[in-house]
Write a protein that binds this DNA or RNA. Sequence first.
DNA 1: TCTGGGGTCCTGCTACGA
DNA 2: TCTGTCGTAGCAGGACCC
Length: 425
Amino acid sequence: MRPATPILHVDMDAFFASVEVVRNPGLRGRPVVVGGSGERGVVAAASYEARVFGIRSAMPSLRARSLCPDLVFLPSDHAHYREVSRRVMAIFHRFTPLVEPLSLDEAFLDVGGAVRTVGEPVEIAAEIRSLVSLEEGLTCSVGVAPNKFLAKLASEQAKPMVSASGPEEGSGIYVVPPDEVEAFLATLPAEAVWGVGPRTMECLQRLGVATVADLAVVPEATLVSLLGDAAGRKLWRLTRGMDDRSVEPAQSVKSIGHEETFSVDLMDPESLIHELGGMADAVASRARAAGVTGRTVNIKVRFADFTTITRASTLADGTDSSARIVDVAGAMLNRIDPSPGVRLLGVSLSGLREGSVRQLRLDELPGDGWDAEERGDRLPRWREAEGVVDRIRRRFGHRAIGHGAAGPGEGPEDPVDRQRWGPDS
DNA sequence: TCTGGGGTCCTGCTACGA
DNA sequence: TCTGTCGTAGCAGGACCC
């Protein structure tokens, strides 16, 4: 086993909401929520003042409003959060090159090297908190522990709390020394362990398990028979504080997808195909920007009663062309009956590989009723057109050019950002 | 409480070729 | 030629994370 190197887990506090407060200091101290404002929208982030009212992320927006009539509801500005996140991550990089972002608002840092040059891990944590506060006006919580799993649990303990009397500051930094791992874990509920969600917890409760201490006495074989091989073994190790994953700065993307919940359920195939076109365009555009192609095209359909189905089709070679994705995804969509009402539609590209696409064979070209000669003539022009679209969007923004029936100016802003938290009102 | 969007990983099943 | 076995790939669905 490799020797434990000190790991930091840095988690920004109520990130999106806090960024909005920095941008508009008049909001300080008020219940602020960022998310989708429509009937089907959800809360993406809530300030601690909003949390006092019981508002949590992923809560339906309608319910959040009913809990707090004075709630300040802001639309999400993902591009801005990305930029702030980039600056925060740059602060982390001043201490170590081993920074693994988990999302825009949290990251693992391997500070084994920095210990020799900067100081003890807890001093590094304090320095990071001070710089983030000074340069960005934001607060963050830091967990310090011998591995990623424990560092993540530790940062949770350092977070601000909410009580009936209002938000209370947290400790900001929480350290789990190697010799106190067992005692630390014993205090936690079983749900705190990574991978234990509502379903797994339901299974564990049948064994009489409520806390990590209860879990620690369950034999590995029992967990494996209950949860399956991989999940059972992983849970057995984590409950003993065992986690030998290293901090990986460069994580390769495994899939690129886009999905949307509609403000009203769609039932006619034409509308769905139209929506599919926009989503395929967004996915292909992101794949080209990332310099990857994908072999498997996936679609996801959620019906009005919330049942969800997925379909996948694997191509002989990878693609990053919206026309090709629409072609394959459209064929799968056409085999699904939308009459019960489609609430959500999604498209994704998986089986990603780095590099651009090869020239397609004539029989692989998009359909659309083109004959072979027409196709051979059109394809290079199609790819050229997609390249031009990318260049226009890079220069003038995503809105400068739309997909299909939506002309310039009518189309959405960056599709990665639009309706990120549900359809707007 | 009537449930978003972007992902990852795992499991069970099936098809297929050696 | 037929049948069984094994490994692998693909598909569908589910659970979980932020």
